[in-house]
């Protein structure tokens, strides 16, 4: 009888369930209008990229020199470039490049970086020292310069660029993951698991890793934007995606010569890059704040 009473009591006391927590998370996340707007914008851009062939009014690579450098009209909403290609269509296809490179590069950076970070944190000693020095070396070269040098050697293209940007970004993850593993390793629950006779590998994958992930995810959402900026930058310099594939950075680069004739040629893709990155960062910041109640400072 007495036991039953406490059981009922305990049920009542237990906090939110997982589902309720998820609902609460999204409520907090989207409470800020800006985050909601950005999330919607982001979804729209992604959809636009996926369904580019359906959305784009023209083939992005078909030239029609007759129509070169037209200003916006009802026929060409954003005008045409110096080869007479429809800029709107090129921008729509360009979204694919930005998104693919952004996501792929961050995925690669994260995969390699967390792996080495984990090794460094878990084994310590010489492994840690070596990995640390190498990651420090990578960090000491500004990311864009490193990517440029690698591009010079290995060439551009979507896949190459993703790998290159991935490598030049991985140091952040090495450092983060290492720090995470080192701190999680010291927690009581990992010690408890160890004392129960868990083997190192199981300890690592069952108890340490799952608890390291959330700051990494936040970092990833914020980094996609940065990577998209880098890709655009490299393409702008003529080192990233090469013609005729449409990339926002290279369109700006091509268009800057024709600012007099059709300013939209250079400015429209630039605005697109800015918007996409703003959306990504706003959502990323929102996720971080929603996960971290500490950020709600006060004065």
């Amino acid at each position: 009888m007495e036991k039953e009473n406490t059981v009922v009591q305990e049920r009542k006391e237990a906090g939110y369930s997982r589902r309720e927590k998820a609902v609460k998370f999204f409520r907090v996340l989207f409470k800020r209008k800006l985050v909601l707007i950005s999330a919607v914008g982001l979804v729209l851009i992604v959809l636009m990229a996926i369904f580019a062939p359906l959305v784009a009014p023209y083939d992005p690579n078909v030239q029609s020199l007759m129509d070169a450098l037209k200003t916006p009209s009802s026929q060409y909403l954003l005008g045409t470039d110096n080869y007479g290609r429809d800029i709107l269509s090129r921008i729509i296809y360009g979204a694919r490049v930005s998104l693919i490179v952004g996501v792929l590069a961050v995925g690669i950076a994260c995969a390699i970086g967390t792996f080495f970070g984990m090794l460094a944190g878990f084994f310590g000693g010489i492994v840690d020292d070596v990995i640390n020095r190498i990651s420090e070396a990578i960090r000491s070269i500004p990311q864009i310069v490193l990517a440029m040098a690698l591009c010079a050697v290995f060439g551009g293209g979507i896949i190459n660029l993703s790998i290159i940007l991935g490598i030049s970004n991985m140091a952040v993850y090495i450092r983060m993951m290492r720090g995470q593993v080192l701190s999680i390793k010291e927690t009581d629950y990992v010690m408890a698991a160890k004392l129960q006779g868990n083997k190192s590998l199981r300890l690592m994958f069952k108890h340490v890793l799952p608890n390291c992930i959330s700051p990494i995810i936040v970092q990833m959402t914020l980094q996609v934007g940065q990577t998209i900026l880098s890709e655009a930058g490299l393409s702008f310099l003529g080192l990233g995606i090469s013609a005729p594939t449409a990339s926002w950075g290279s369109i700006v680069s091509d268009g800057r010569v024709y600012l007099m004739q059709n300013p939209f040629f250079a400015l429209a893709p630039g605005v697109c890059i800015a918007l996409l990155v703003i959306f990504l960062n706003t959502v990323g910041d929102g996720v971080r704040d929603a996960l971290d109640p500490r950020m709600r400072g006060r004065l």
């Binding site: 930058g233 600012l259 630039g270 800015a274 703003i278 960062n281 910041d285």
Partner: peptide, 14 residues
């Protein structure tokens, strides 16, 4: 937040 997201080359061209 907006300024952080503006690529330098775009800003320059603008």
């Amino acid at each position: 937040n907006v300024c952080c997201c503006l690529p330098q080359f775009f800003l320059s061209v603008l």
